[in-house]
């Protein structure tokens, strides 16, 4: 599967509320049962093994703690347009 996007989660900021894990359409977010942050929460993490994240940013939209930075592969169409404009 072609990789389209990824997220970086600030795990110290995360309070483990699970809203992102439940909202993720690809079901690639989960709470990290092996990690406790300084606040005592199991923070969310991305399950990366299958590269299913599309970078849709739904997780970041619902995150109450602004923990999630979302990256997405530029769409080919946008790359073409950018190249057309800037060479």
């Amino acid at each position: 599967m072609a990789l389209k996007g990824t997220v970086v989660i600030d795990q110290e900021r995360c309070k483990g509320c699970q809203l992102c894990t439940l909202a993720c359409p690809q079901n690639v977010l989960l709470l990290d049962a092996d990690l406790l942050n300084a606040k005592g929460y199991h923070p969310a993490r991305l399950e990366e093994s299958h590269n299913f994240c599309t970078g849709c940013a739904v997780c970041a939209v619902i995150c109450p703690d602004a923990c999630i930075t979302v990256f997405r592969q530029p769409s080919p169409r946008r790359v073409e347009r950018t190249e057309a404009i800037y060479g």
Partner: peptide, 12 residues
């Protein structure tokens, strides 16, 4: 994981 440099930051 793909290098972040190749990706567009869409949300922060």
């Amino acid at each position: 994981m793909i290098p972040a440099a190749e990706l567009e930051r869409v949300y922060e």
